[in-house]
Design a protein around this nucleic acid. Structure first.
Length: 302
DNA sequence: GGCCAGGCGCGTA
DNA sequence: TACGCGCATGGC
């Protein structure tokens, strides 16, 4: 077997933070390395001070697919500079240095997030892992490594029974995933062309799929298609906006959505990921929780 | 043991 | 347009 290696020289990139930030669900840490699957390739990544090193299980003619997935060409500093200059964003940036957005394969991203509703990230990882093991194609891996499987195609999941899907612990989400897989497999929704359309039109297409509402649609638009202004609003973002921006009034979802559309600028999708991760990690430490409450004393007019 | 998790679809006002 | 509820399952 031919192991291929490459190095990408990139600054301001925290690989661990990025791979474990709840946007992709197939990366596992083993020592100082991260192992996962991108498309039909087994991949292992390592962080170095000025580079990311990669290995695959087969020969690679070029590495553009991985540069694209990792988005190593993105100038993170110019994105952070475009964030609104307010205390919640300053604190989020300080807490999440090097956090990036990946560019995932649309079907995998869509199917994963259909399984994500009211699930914790560890559980989503478990569901996605089971789906891959039961329905995904086995992939070549280096000697001694655990088996690896591709994410199952829409066709394969469309052919699976609802009981088979429920066996992957996805509960009431099974008919949603099945229905979405059938529409994609039948060509009723062409995921390969959505990226060419304006944000609203692409979102409207995703919203026709069962189990896909605004939040999941925006996750796919942001994490798979790179629409920088998609702004997924989940329970953590609601908490973040209410506690950090409107600590007194605590507006509800529709008001928060409108606020998010105008406040966060041209890279609001990135801003959202920083707020999301800041909010989730801040909750774990009491000291940071206190800082959070302190930050929440100020208010911003909508 | 109770609360909550990267929500959605549907019924109701 | 804006709630409220039920839906599986498991972490903490």
């Amino acid at each position: 077997m031919t192991l291929s290696r490459a190095a990408f020289y990139v600054k301001h990139y925290d690989l661990a933070l990025t791979l474990a930030s709840g946007q992709a669900f197939r990366w596992r840490r083993s020592g100082d390395a991260w192992t996962g699957v991108i498309g039909s390739r087994w991949v292992r990544l390592r962080q170095e001070p000025e580079a990311i090193r990669a290995e695959t299980a087969a020969a690679e003619a070029d590495w553009q697919w991985l540069r694209h997935y990792l988005q190593v060409e993105v100038d993170l500093e110019s994105i952070l500079t475009a964030f609104p200059d307010d205390p919640p964003m300053r604190d989020s940036v300080a807490a999440c240095r090097g956090l990036r957005l990946l560019r995932q394969e649309p079907w995998e991203c869509l199917a994963s997030f259909i399984c994500s509703s009211t699930k914790q990230i560890v559980q989503i990882e478990q569901i996605v892992g089971l789906l891959c093991r039961r329905f995904g194609q086995a992939l070549p891996v280096p000697p001694g490594m655990d088996e690896a499987c591709a994410f199952p195609t829409a066709e394969r999941l469309a052919a699976a029974s609802e009981a088979e899907l429920r066996a992957c612990k996805m509960g009431f989400r099974a008919p949603y995933l099945s229905g979405a897989a059938r529409k994609v497999a039948a060509g009723e929704v062409d995921l390969s062309r959505l990226g060419l359309w304006p944000l609203e039109e692409a979102r409207a297409v995703l919203l026709t799929l069962p189990g896909v509402g605004m939040k999941i649609a925006d996750c796919v638009l942001l994490f798979a298609y790179g629409f920088q202004q998609a702004f997924p609003v989940d329970v953590w973002i609601i908490k973040a906006l209410q506690q950090l921006y409107f600590p007194k009034r605590r507006p509800k979802l529709p008001r928060l959505r409108r606020f998010s559309q105008t406040h966060f600028g041209p890279y609001s999708g990135y801003a959202q990921q920083y707020l999301f991760h800041y909010m989730r990690t801040a909750r774990k430490g009491r000291s940071i929780q206190r800082n959070l409450l302190t930050v929440g004393q100020h208010s911003v007019e909508p």
